[in-house]
């Protein structure tokens, strides 16, 4: 079976390792022909008896179908007996590092607006569940953001030492934190958190555990009740003593997210609606007044 011998070593020059996870490793590499960089994610097959893992087959097939300017694209798939290499377009900077590296440009209101629009225009196509600044890549020159959060496309599974960051509930919607049923509104919530962070360059919620995260949400957005969120009482939060669920001084969104124009605050409030059924959809968010003068 000569045709199965891989040719990757010729096509791509492997450079440094840029990530490591329980699936395998991520390398930065150079396309010898085009002289461009790419990132290569190597996924090892653990259990030889099962052949190619189903998750890999479905994951790659899904990536193949996605074709959107705001999604990191899959350039190539190379296979070997013991692994597959997924070659993705390479962007050096994620949104988290971008905000740290360019504190001034990063706070430009028009850039924030543009980035938010780009993230929203893609996000309704798929359920991400885990959107956060680290999973959004930035093309600094072109001012384009690309979501790199499609299962296998996730650039770096955080190393074990940082698991707290993966589990950090900072961008997770309330219905995810309380184990309720969830769907695409969870992504709108995360995008809302990212939106606020792009304005202030500080995470909106820092909660280290699910309980403190819920308290932070309720302190900022109010404790939900049967009117604002029908059925909330059956979701396992004890709402009989609302005072116990808030901490610190009550502040409004406009106090916390300083410098955001009023239409932006309105959009943000609709994205951070605790009740997922009343949360704004990506489609509606894209035609919100905030984007009108963009």
């Amino acid at each position: 079976m000569d045709y199965l011998i891989d040719t990757m070593d010729n096509k791509y020059e492997q450079l440094e390792t840029i990530g490591r996870g329980n699936f395998g490793e991520v390398y930065k590499c150079r396309d010898r022909e085009k002289n461009t960089f790419a990132s290569m994610k190597r996924i090892l097959f653990r259990y030889q008896d099962d052949g190619v893992p189903g998750s890999v087959i479905r994951g790659v097939a899904l990536l193949k179908e996605l074709d959107h300017p705001n999604i990191i694209s899959l350039l190539d798939v190379l296979d070997d007996e013991k692994w597959v290499d997924l070659v993705f377009e390479y962007l050096e900077m994620d949104l988290w590092r971008f905000m740290g590296t360019y504190p001034r440009i990063g706070k430009d209101p028009n850039l924030t607006k543009s980035f938010l629009y780009q993230i929203l225009s893609d996000s309704y196509r798929i359920l991400h569940r885990n959107l956060k600044p680290r999973n959004i890549m930035v093309d600094v020159d072109k001012k384009i953001v690309k979501i790199a959060d499609y299962g296998l496309a996730r650039p770096v599974d955080a190393p074990v030492a940082f698991t707290y960051q993966v589990l950090s509930p900072g961008y997770k919607a309330p219905e995810l934190l309380i184990d309720a049923k969830y769907s695409t509104p969870v992504d709108i919530w995360s995008v809302g958190c990212i939106f606020a962070e792009m304005v202030t360059h500080h995470p909106l919620f820092n909660g280290q555990c699910e309980h403190t995260a819920i308290m932070e949400m309720f302190s900022l957005l109010g404790v939900p009740n049967v009117e604002t969120w029908p059925g909330v009482t059956s979701l396992g939060i004890n709402l009989s003593n609302p005072e116990a669920l808030v901490s610190g001084v009550r502040r409004s969104l406009s106090d916390v997210v300083k410098g955001l124009e009023p239409t932006g605050i309105d959009l943000l409030a609709q994205m951070l609606c605790l009740n997922p059924c009343r949360r704004i959809t990506a489609r509606d968010a894209l035609i919100h007044a905030y984007f009108r003068n963009a």
């Binding site: 045709y3 199965l4 097959f45 030889q48 052949g51 190619v52 087959i57 097939a61 899904l62 007996e81």
Partner: peptide, 21 residues
Amino acid sequence: DAKTTQRMELLVLSTLGWNMN
């Protein structure tokens, strides 16, 4: 054996360009 089938799986996958849907 599983190894041969896996190789064949990979050959099918790459021939079909991983378009499995």
